[in-house]
Design a protein around this nucleic acid. Structure first.
Lengths: 229, 229
DNA sequence: GCAAAAGTGTTAGGTGTACACCCATGA
DNA sequence: TCATGGGTGTACACCTAACACTTTTGC
């Protein structure tokens, strides 16, 4: 116990998690109804207080698992939010993370348990406190990151098609991309494995499945290869 | 007072500041000797505990002013660091910022007051706790940011020369740049104002001074102009 | 007059972008 | 057989990167 520290105030510290998912051609984020006062019942990001025995990222992992049923998701820190009046109940300093969720793994039983729903990222209205800012910052960081690192795969099932992947990037960047240019670029990176089978759910002809080859990706990274989409 | 919050633990929250400066052709960072136990006397970033009545950025501004004598520096958040054992005294969650300092404004009286010194960023050895990681992360973020936003000017005096500016970018990216290409690119952005007078300190011929035109820069930003260096 | 840094244009190669048609299949 | 989405190659414009010589001036 160090005497020096004693003169200073302590704070509640929480983590707030932006859970992002992708389905069809739109990006979704999970929103829950706040369970306690103040602002009980209002739309909110998933949050929780940090425990004394866990790191920040562990806390975020715990919260995401609690609300989605998925362990070990891809997490990235968005930043710390500590304005004096941001939480209208008490002074709470929050560390925000975004999580990339494969929506196929989401446990739908939890919809009721926590009163959650997936919302189109571009159609979010009011959220409590500064959660809209956190959401906007998270999406912004995802955009930048996705432009140099192939992290989008975390939003897709293990097997996905190129049209699906393109729709994902179009949703992230909120734009449209040229099919031929997109395919050329992504295939030239040599980090995808073409599968034998096809997804026939969205067309008669069917689109070949691909998988992300993380081993190849890591090798290329080490050789200083620069990815950009 | 909300009953719900009461069940949770509170934490010490500090800010740690990476003060970056530039002189000659090298990037410097300010390092201080820690003033209290544990690890008293060891090399450390500038830090301080957050006060109940201030935001995180205000805390960082306060700490930077305390150690440099400069108010209102350019600040950017690096992230939150909260591993359980990171501070070997108590559990402290730290929010890190980097500050871009015009070294000409630095108050040298403070060298003694706080036992500080400027060190070449590339020649930092051991720092306490996770401060080396914080420093590395800060420089990394600066590099990325400097590539799309002309923030380097915050490291230079109001009037600077193009050779100086080039040396700055070479220091940030740790590389060498072609003089003609660099000048063309930066002048084409149309955010610099050529002055009448020259800096004769580094050559007989002298190099023209320039100033950064923030108004023009903001206009271009609003028009969606994309900067990149 | 010479040393030392400031300043100045052009070209080739590569990268990004625009663009249109055929293919496979189920209904 | 036709409607629907999957899959493929090329040409041009632009941007990046490489490169060498002249100018100024204090000593």
């Amino acid at each position: 116990m160090n005497a020096f520290y004693l003169g200073y105030e302590k704070f509640y510290v929480s983590v707030d998690c932006v859970c992002l998912g992708f389905k069809g051609s739109t990006l979704y984020t999970l929103i829950t109804k706040r369970k306690f006062e103040p602002l009980i019942g209002e739309d909110s990001l998933m949050g929780g207080f940090v425990h004394p025995d866990e790191n920040l990222e562990q806390a975020a992992t715990r919260v995401v698992a609690e609300y989605t049923g998925i362990e070990g998701v891809y997490l990235e820190q968005v930043g710390a939010y500590g304005d004096v009046g941001r939480d209208t109940g008490e002074r709470v300093i929050s560390v925000a993370y975004y999580a990339l969720i494969d929506m196929e793994l989401f446990n739908e039983d939890l919809y009721e348990v926590h009163d959650t729903r997936w919302h189109n990222v571009n159609q979010i209205n009011t959220l409590i406190f500064d959660h809209r800012v956190i959401l906007a910052d998270a999406v912004e960081i995802l955009r930048k990151k996705a432009a140099n690192r192939p992290i989008g795969f975390n939003l897709l099932p293990e097997k996905f098609t190129l049209p699906q992947l393109q729709l994902l990037y179009e949703a992230i960047y909120n734009t449209t991309l040229d099919k031929r240019n997109f395919r050329k670029k992504i295939l030239d990176m040599d980090i995808l494995e073409k599968q034998e089978d096809k997804d026939k759910s969205s067309s008669k002809r069917g689109a070949f499945y691909y998988t992300f080859n993380k081993k190849k990706y890591d090798q290329l990274l080490q050789r200083g290869y620069y990815f950009s989409l």
